Simulated assay, not measured.
Amino acid sequence: MVKKVLIVYAHQSSGSFNAAAKDTAVKALTAQGCKVEVSDLYAMKFKATATAEDITGEVKNAEHFRYAEETKRAWEEGKLSADITEEQRKVTEADLIVFQFPMYWFTVPAIMKGWFDRVLTLGFAYSHDKRYSCGIFKDKKVILSFTTGSHESMFSANGINGDMNVTLWPLQNGILHYCGFQVLAPQIFWAPSHIPSEARKTLLDAWRTRLQGLLGEEPLSFIPLDSFDGQGFQLKPEIHEKHATKEFGLMVGIHLGKPIPPNNQMKAGV
């Protein structure tokens, strides 16, 4: 069965390293027999703001507009705007989604954040009962592939930018895992604008090599939803007790007041 891949790409320049990384992924995955679609957000002039314009026809409560509730109803009734509906089609069909972007202010560019805000609507991407390990997209894989403006050492536990694992937690846990995706370890291109062209070629070669087995990679591990109680969503006492004597906390965000486990958001199986 042909695997389908969606690359959500956010860079303004076709001459950028991000463009080269995107093109490398398209070629490598296509060569494996995958069907690859690219959402080039800047070329599409994708709207970043989540507004009532995302709904065709009248909203239920214009005076107190609540985006999540209104778009859920619109999704159920087939009244979401065409650009959202098209991206949701791509997500539904994809076995793997690659987000390719330059890191802006420790997160994704605004146009990509807008994609998250507008495409991953309530009902379509998550619900109260379907999130985290019980999420809607638990059969799909996803990866963040991005460039930084700073060298790797600056994103360390002792570096001025802080631990990259901490930086990644809101994106990988709060958006992707929240919707149930199997999150693969990120592909990070450290400061490509500050290294020689030959070194940039080496980075792309490593990405090309990784792409050969990307669909078969084990995802990062997250704590299952059933490890939390159903009311306050706190870790169950038995889980807490099991880890009481361990050196590190469970995860970056759920660390039990202990040191953060090394590479928790960077490598599978650690």
Rank of each mutant, 00 (worst) to 15 (best):
135 G>D: 03
178 Y>F: 05
4 K>L: 06
87 E>G: 07
93 E>S: 11
34 C>M: 11
213 G>Q: 11
102 P>S: 03
124 F>M: 09
13 S>C: 07
102 P>H: 03
181 F>C: 02
47 K>Y: 04
8 V>E: 05
268 A>T: 01
26 V>E: 06
142 V>M: 07
173 N>Y: 07
8 V>T: 04
231 Q>R: 11
158 N>S: 10
133 S>Q: 13
175 I>D: 02
83 D>R: 06
157 A>Q: 13
50 A>C: 06
4 K>Y: 02
204 L>T: 13
111 I>W: 01
164 M>D: 01
163 D>I: 03
240 H>R: 13
194 H>L: 14
226 D>C: 13
82 A>W: 04
218 E>M: 10
112 M>D: 01
241 E>D: 13
85 T>C: 12
201 K>S: 14
29 L>M: 07
198 E>P: 00
241 E>V: 15
70 E>H: 14
233 F>K: 12
251 M>K: 01
95 D>V: 08
147 T>K: 08
209 T>G: 00
57 G>N: 15
71 T>Y: 01
190 W>N: 00
77 E>C: 11
264 N>H: 05
161 N>L: 12
246 K>Y: 08
130 K>R: 14
97 I>V: 05
103 M>H: 04
187 Q>N: 10
43 A>N: 14
192 P>E: 03
236 K>R: 15
233 F>N: 08
18 N>I: 02
178 Y>V: 01
40 D>F: 08
208 R>W: 06
168 L>T: 03
62 A>L: 13
224 P>T: 08
170 P>V: 02
70 E>Q: 11
171 L>E: 04
210 R>L: 05
208 R>C: 06
87 E>V: 07
130 K>I: 10
172 Q>W: 02
235 L>H: 07
232 G>D: 13
